[in-house]
Simulated assay, not measured.
Amino acid sequence: MSEIAITAEPLTGPRCLFLVSRPVAPAQWAYAADRPSAQGSPLAEALFAVEGVSALLIAHDLLVVTRSGAPGLPLVGPYVRLVRRAFGDTSARAPVDWKTLGKGVAKVLRAHLESGQVALSPALIVSMPTTEQLRQRVRDVLEEQVNPVVAGHGGGVELVDLIENVVYLRMSGGCQGCGLADVTLRHGVEAVIREAVPEIGRIHDLTNHAAGVRPYQLRGSSPFAIKK
């Protein structure tokens, strides 16, 4: 059997995405907001036993872990006004070390895959919101929290589609072709979507940035950059 490769990708805020080289929950996904909701799901139960895990999303070949601790964000990289509003004081640091937590998560994932057990219980899977419910919640986040901010730079973000729990977005106006569009997406739009709709898995940008005719880029600033 081939080696199990696990890649960790820290996300803005108290979350980290783990990509696994084998399907963890083939063609399935579920979000567990706390330990009680994970009961009956072998992988979810084992992951909640890892110190620092407070919530998790298991979807196909990925895992998004939310760590416990202070609600603030560590001061790493450019954070956005949206994230500041969502999480509060960005000067606070979560007490759980990602390196230690990541090792614990990887150990559990490997042991689970080698055991051959199912990852999620049918009860947890059927308790998840429908695709249409997720679609509407993402639309609401874009309309109420994201677009009022990017509109200041003449931009916009629309939901193209949502399949299962995977989101497909498109940027327009000043965001299309902007040199900092990825910062806007990863550290702004994505962070706020995941905070409001934690059941979301991957988020894809379908924008043809090469076709942008009026990209906004002013002294290297994103519309979400925190101004001192």
Rank of each mutant, 00 (worst) to 15 (best):
S2F: 14
I4C: 02
A5G: 02
I6L: 08
E9P: 06
E9Y: 11
P10H: 06
G13N: 05
G13A: 03
R15N: 07
L17F: 09
L19P: 06
P23Q: 14
P26Y: 02
A27G: 08
Q28K: 14
W29T: 10
W29N: 04
Y31Q: 03
D34Q: 05
D34H: 09
R35H: 08
A38R: 07
Q39I: 06
L43M: 07
A44I: 09
A46S: 10
G52S: 10
S54A: 10
A55F: 04
L56Q: 07
A59Y: 11
L62T: 06
R67V: 07
P71Q: 10
P74A: 14
P74F: 03
L75C: 12
P78Q: 13
V80N: 14
R84T: 11
A86R: 07
F87H: 15
G88W: 03
G88V: 01
D89E: 04
S91D: 13
S91M: 08
S91I: 03
A94F: 07
A94V: 14
V96F: 08
W98E: 15
T100A: 11
L101A: 08
L101E: 00
V105N: 13
L109P: 07
P122V: 02
A123I: 12
S127G: 04
S127M: 07
T131I: 02
Q133F: 11
L134M: 13
L134D: 13
R139I: 00
V141S: 01
L142A: 11
L142E: 11
V146P: 13
G152M: 03
H153G: 15
V157Q: 03
L159M: 10
L159H: 10
L159T: 10
D161Y: 13
E164L: 13
L169Q: 02
L169W: 03
R170S: 05
G174L: 05
C175R: 00
C175P: 10
C175H: 02
C175I: 03
C178E: 00
C178Y: 04
A181F: 05
L185Y: 01
H187C: 10
V189K: 00
V189M: 08
A191S: 01
V192E: 09
P198M: 10
E199A: 01
I200K: 04
I203T: 04
H204N: 09
N208K: 00
A210C: 05
G220P: 03
S221G: 01
S222L: 05
K228V: 12
